[in-house]
């Protein structure tokens, strides 16, 4: 009883949006956001903000980069230096940002179509380099911003606006793609797993290298409606009943079939794996010795 007595009381009539614990991490002047009711992207943003609240990092060391699409709008709502770039090029843009100011901690938010469709080449190369980027991919199995077309992640048999008779185009197993290309950290959750997702963001922010987190999220407006899967609540129920946590699972076994089991968890975690930057510095120090002048962590800016 005493614990209850100490709990803060909320005056619901007078509570303001700015009073929300994650408000400092969000551009509250841009609320309300554009996402549909029951969309999972807001949950991902909330979990990231909650992780940031916990970590208490200097906000000026954080940068957010997004591509195009529903999840591409995340950069516009995060209260950091934030870049809403071109379709598919978020990773390439972020690579330049990170390489020119290495002290930045760069997080990307983008969708499955943006990062694995049009941006797939940048994805595999950044993973190969173990480029020091945290990539959060929200997978709603469809191109949602444009009206629900088939994506490289649409499960077989699922209906999309451009596969009206059901999809026959083999989808990606994204954790396996990331892991096989060299990512040092790979995890997957659904937007139902808010506590675990938040923990994963916290942990991944403190790791280095190419860190890939896939979040399966509902698009009830398009994907769920066309496939007669019900509302967001039905999808949450589906995630609850059909997701299975298997930490350390071989990523070859985590592909997703239509309305089949979703394997979640942390699949890869190699904190010692060296990054592109570390490899570059170590190599130049070895071969060039004292002649090597590294770019300063605050960037190649000289104002003398």
């Amino acid at each position: 009883m005493s614990a209850q007595a100490e709990a803060p009381t909320i005056d619901m009539d007078n509570v303001q949006p700015e009073d929300h614990p994650i408000a400092p991490f969000i551009r509250m002047d841009r609320m309300p956001h554009i996402w549909c009711p029951t969309c999972g992207i807001g949950t991902v943003v909330k979990c990231y903000a909650a992780a940031m609240e916990k970590l208490d990092l200097d906000p000026k060391t954080i940068a957010i980069v997004s591509g195009i699409g529903c999840t591409g709008r995340v950069a516009g709502y995060m209260n950091y230096d934030a870049f809403h770039t071109t379709h598919g090029r978020a990773i390439a843009f972020a690579t330049g940002l990170k390489m020119a100011r290495t002290e930045l901690n760069v997080t990307l938010f983008s969708g499955d179509g943006d990062l694995s469709g049009i941006g797939g080449n940048h994805f595999i190369h950044a993973a190969r380099r173990n480029m020091d980027l945290l990539v959060v991919l929200v997978n709603n199995f469809t191109y949602a911003m444009t009206g629900g077309q088939n994506a490289p992640t649409t499960p077989l048999k699922a209906i999309s606006s451009t596969m009206p008779f059901g999809n026959f185009d083999q989808p990606f197993n994204l954790p396996h793609l990331a892991a096989s290309c060299g990512a040092s950290y790979v995890a997957r959750w659904t937007s139902l797993h808010i506590r675990r997702m938040t923990k994963t963001f916290e942990e991944a922010m403190q790791r280095k290298g190419f860190r890939f987190i896939e979040v399966i999220a509902p698009c009830s407006t398009l994907y769920a409606r066309r496939n007669k899967l019900g509302t967001g609540l039905n999808l949450m129920q589906f995630y609850h009943d059909n997701s299975e946590i298997r930490h350390g699972e071989d990523t070859r076994n985590v592909d997703i079939g239509f309305q089949e089991k979703i394997i979640c968890g942390k699949f890869v975690d190699e904190p010692e794996k060296t990054t592109y930057h570390e490899n570059m510095h170590t190599h130049y120090e070895q071969v060039l010795g004292d002649k090597y002048v590294p770019m300063p962590p605050e960037g190649g800016w000289r104002d003398e």
Binding site: V65, D81, F83, T85, T86, G88, R89, I91, A92, F93, A94, T95, G96, L97, K98, M99, A100, R101, L104, N121, H122, H125, M280, Y284, L288, K291, Y292, V293, P294, M295, P296, E298, G299, G300, W301
Partner: peptide
């Protein structure tokens, strides 16, 4: 490497141009 500069060979020209914009926003 002898003057504090960084070169990266990107995977294609779309990536190259995107990376240049990202880098330019650091003042570099």
């Amino acid at each position: 490497p002898m003057m504090g500069g960084t070169f990266i060979q990107m995977e294609d020209e779309m990536a190259s141009m995107a990376a240049v914009i990202g880098a330019a926003f650091t003042g570099t």
